[in-house]
Amino acid sequence: MFKNSDIPPSADTETIIGSTVKVEGDFVGKGNIVVEGEVSGSLKTDGEVRIGTRATINANISAASAMIAGTVHGNISVSERLDLTETALIDGDITAKSVSMTPGAVFNGKCAMGGSSKQPVQTSSYKNAKKEEATEDN
């Protein structure tokens, strides 16, 4: 009855936003959320957010932890761990206790980690970094 997702939901998944729907507005959940479709507005939960490869998010995300494999245009704030897979594309700022980034992931924005009050570190995509390096060499 249930389709095979590219991100298998965990046992306590509360919400599944599938690839055939578009969600608009302020989504507030209490458990784990799997997203494979489109979300615009904001996405907030006390649990984990898993963004699939086909998902497009135009929203700020706030969660306990997150795993991103799709596209996010917006800021991501997690109190624990943030995982970016090789297909992730983030256009926004990140705040997390810890971050893991697989080679291939693209991240354009600022990153604040460890729950400290340190100034966020400005980062850019691999392509932009290469361009900046080339400019400096010249």
Binding site: K3, I16, I17, G18, S19, T20
Partner: peptide, 10 residues
């Protein structure tokens, strides 16, 4: 025939 559930919202 319903062959799959795509989305669930509590």
């Amino acid at each position: 025939k319903i062959d799959r559930i795509d989305s669930i919202f509590p």
